[in-house]
Design a protein around this nucleic acid. Structure first.
Lengths: 189, 189
DNA sequence: CGCCGATACTCAACAAGTTGAATAGGTGCG
DNA sequence: CGCACCTATTCAACTTGTTGAGTATCGGCG
């Protein structure tokens, strides 16, 4: 019942099909929750059965029909219930790369180094996307102006996403430096 | 087969019982992987069947016997295999608090505010623990000295944990400020 | 002396998440 | 004109992860 909350959060942006969510989960909530298409369709069906979302089938000319989901009043109520419920401990971070780094002293130094570098490239791409998203939200206004006028939630989570990636890059630089020093020490021994 | 890697990472610190891991997962790898005791016992049994870990039963006088697990050579080989395999996309962050923050414009502003504050307290406690762990690792040496002499992996992941929590606190300050401004705007309307 | 909590583990049942493929029409590319 | 990829969804089978309780022994507290 946790994915459901992320889905409701995504539907705050407006009607969406399962397919939209499966892709676009990436653009909105995806930074702190992920799901496969299967998971989304399954959950959306359940939510419909429970009356949290309603569907509207849209016939399309040159592509398959789609079902657009939107939050019902019951959905909004459920969402407020979720917001009000006490928070447990921070959900897991679960990053396989960090597990690898913590093991790097057993060997495979080069392979892990390469994976850190790859992750950093990935992070730079993500930062660029975040930057564009931020520009799109601000529409030329400065932050204070935006925050006085618009939904603050998505902006705040965007900020967290940006700082997370920036921090990741900074850490990556350090990690690469340390691993290189270690590699030099090993080969020079 | 992902938990298994985290378990192997933890066992690099030395022999441990399921119980040790269940608690102490918190001290070592726990910052980027979590598991319940059930999960650990189940996985350890499987790993034993597959020859990745070996067990040694220790009779204890005044408490239940325990099984101490340690990595076998096959376990080390499997670990190196894991290190070498290409990394997929960063595993999910999945933080319910961020989902809540992104929804905060629908209401329950005070409740979410309180949860952010609670999370920040939790983060400060975690930072304090990280700080103590760092001191324990360094044993009075400076960073360069430590990194030349000891396993670099655990230190690097510790650094990532520290910067993550620091960043969380900074973001939390911002979020609280923004939410307070929004609350003031609403009540003054 | 009875209860709480720590150590140490097990069992059962369930919920959540992943993988791979199937279906079915459409567009674009060489 | 055939092949690959995009939209849009569904099915089936699987692996992971979660919850809650149960067993057993000991130490400490009031």
């Amino acid at each position: 019942m946790a994915l459901r909350n992320a889905v409701m959060a995504a539907l705050l942006e407006g009607e969406a099909s399962g397919y939209d969510l499966a892709k676009g989960f990436d653009a909105s909530v995806a930074n702190f929750w992920t799901a496969t298409p299967q998971q989304l369709y399954r959950e959306l069906d359940r939510m419909e059965r429970e009356g949290l979302v309603s569907t509207r089938v849209v016939r399309q000319e040159r592509r398959p029909d789609k079902r657009l989901f939107s939050l019902t009043d019951a959905g909004y109520a459920a969402l407020r219930g979720f917001l009000a419920e006490p928070i447990g401990r921070p959900t897991a971070i679960r990053d396989a790369l960090l597990v690898k780094v913590s093991c790097v002293d057993v060997g495979e130094l080069d392979a892990v180094r390469a994976q850190i570098a790859e992750r950093m490239d990935w992070g730079r791409a993500k930062l660029a996307r975040y930057g564009r998203l931020r520009e799109r939200l601000l529409q030329g206004r400065d932050e204070a102006e935006y925050l006085a006028a618009e939904r603050v939630g998505p902006y705040l989570t965007l900020l967290r996403g940006i700082s997370f990636e920036e921090e990741n890059l900074r850490w990556g630089e350090t990690a690469l430096r340390v691993l290189d020093a270690r590699a030099a020490a090993i080969s020079g021994r």
